[in-house]
Structure formats: C-alpha cells, structure tokens
C-alpha cells in the first residue's frame, strides 16, 4: 500500500520555512507536505538542514519565518522581545506535540523510569488516559516491538537497539497522527540497525503517516512514498522513490547517492 489516495487529508504542510541560527542560515525556504498515510523520507548530507526541518515541525526549533500546518491547524507564531520567533500559544503547541510521535537519534528515554513507565508517562500525564488502560496498551506495544520481558528494566540496562524500539513504543503509545523519525539508526551499532528498521518498516506497511530523516538509502527507497533531497537548506529534488533513486536529475543528488553507496 505505497500510494496515498488523493482524498486523504493533509497531515503536515510546510510552506517557505526559514531558520537562522544567528548568522547561519540553515533553512532557506523549504516547502513540504504530507497526506495521511504518506511516508516522507528526507535525505541529504550533513548540514543540509534535514534534522532542523524535522525539529521545526513540532517547534523543538522555532522557525525564523514560514508556515507550518499540522492536521490542518496552523501553528501560531509571534516575535518575542528579542525578535526571535516563538510559539504564540503554549497550549496549542503542547496539544499539537502530544499527537506527534517523535523518535530521536539518541533515543532519549527517561533514565529514571523503567521501560513501561516511559511508555505510559505521556498517555497518563499529558493525554489523561486511565492508568490501567495505558498499562494494557503499553504492554501490547512492547510486545509488538519485541520487548515484553524488558518492561521493568531501566533504559541504561538495555542495548541501543532495544532502547530505540522502546522509544518507538513510547511514540506509538500516544496514538500519533504523524510519526517523526530523526535519524533513528544513526547512533546504533551496525548489527543493531536491522532490528529497528524492521519495526519502522512494519509501521510504514500498515499505512502510518511518517516523516523520516535518514541515512539508510536502501531503507528509504523501500518504505517511502515520497522522497525529499535537501541540499544546503533548500529542496534540491523531490519525487517518488523510484524517480529519486532510479533516475536522479540533479547533479548534486547524483553525487550524493554515489557517495553514500
């Protein structure tokens, strides 16, 4: 099911996004959109701005200018006293974030909580789900990522691959409208990459909406419905995976693909 029907609702819409860190212009007017069921892979070299783009979607980085719509709702931004753009309405941003399941490069599981406590934390304390319901759901999700027997283990005692699968369970527990993956396998030892990609691949198969920043080109080609190649803060080329990987048009993309293989 690698196609998105035209009738599907818009999940993420980004228009002319700019991001500056001081003098450094990281994003120079990026537009991107994803409909329900889309798997958008963002690829590009280091420093191309791909992680920043992803982190702007849930305002972990505040964009300098531009428009972001999540599920048709525009994130309200304003300028603060220092002239930086910040979210205008904290509650709006918190509400939007609580339905975006983010998976980080370095897992970022909370170290003072066991695995299952990590998974039930947001459902109970942010979304207001009943505890027994959240626990039952978390157990189902941990079983799904193959970590049932690790439910009461603290993250520091898990391997990187197990931590990342746990972090995916944590993201799934909020029943996300969109999942955001920020280079989910870059911090893993090579032999652990496979187990994590398998879980993410399964999620793509079942038609979850995902935005995926990744270095794994083969994987992107397999699971993505749409690929965006970012170069130096701009979308250099985008299209279906067959076109991007099979018949790249831009020289920079050709060179990039040549170098990563």
């Amino acid at each position: 099911m690698k196609y998105a029907p035209e009738a599907a609702a818009e999940a993420i819409h980004i228009e002319n996004l700019h991001k500056k860190f001081g003098e450094l212009h990281v994003l120079k007017g990026v537009s991107l959109s994803a409909r329900d069921g889309d798997v958008v892979a963002i690829i590009g070299g280091s420093g191309s701005g791909k992680s920043t783009l992803l982190r702007c979607i849930n305002c972990l980085e505040n964009p300098t200018s531009g428009l972001i719509r999540v599920n048709g709702e525009e994130i309200k931004l304003k300028a603060d006293s220092h002239g930086h753009t910040v979210p205008a309405d904290r509650r709006q941003i918190e509400r939007i974030r609580s339905r975006l399941g983010m998976v980080f490069q370095s897992f970022n599981l909370w170290s003072h909580m066991t695995l299952i406590e990590n998974v039930i934390e947001v459902p109970i304390h942010v979304l207001g789900v009943q505890r027994d319901e959240a626990v039952a759901n978390a157990e189902r999700l941990l079983a799904r990522v193959g970590l049932s027997e690790k439910r009461d283990v603290y993250p520091a005692f898990l391997s990187g691959g197990q931590q990342q699968r746990g972090a995916i369970a944590r993201a799934l527990a909020i029943e996300p409208r969109v999942m955001l993956f920020d280079e989910p396998t870059s911090a893993l030892d090579p032999e652990l990459v496979g187990e994590v990609l398998k879980v993410i691949g399964d999620l793509a198969q079942e038609g979850r909406t995902m935005i995926l920043v990744t270095h794994e080109m083969k994987f992107a080609r397999k699971v993505a419905t749409h690929v965006v190649y970012l170069y130096n803060g701009l979308v250099e080329e985008e299209g279906p995976p067959e076109a991007i990987f099979g018949a790249p048009r831009s020289d920079r993309l050709k060179k990039f693909l040549h170098n990563v293989h």
């Binding site: 972990l60 983010m102 980080f104 370095s106 970022n108 170290s111 304390h125």
Partner: peptide, 30 residues
C-alpha cells in the same frame, strides 16, 4: 541531566510544570 531527555518531554507536549515535576526533578536526583 542529558538534554535529550528534557527535549523528549517537550516533544511530547509536556507543559513546563509537568516537565519539572515528572522529568527534571526526578532525573536530577541521582
């Protein structure tokens, strides 16, 4: 505290008060 853990809490929509109570204070204890 590893900054990523605070960032993860923000990414899941925790309000500043909740973040303090559930993440920052217990995570800094050790």
């Amino acid at each position: 505290i590893p900054q990523g853990q605070i960032e993860a809490a923000r990414a899941y929509g925790m309000s500043p008060g909740l973040l303090l109570r559930r993440i920052t204070l217990p995570a800094m204890l050790p």
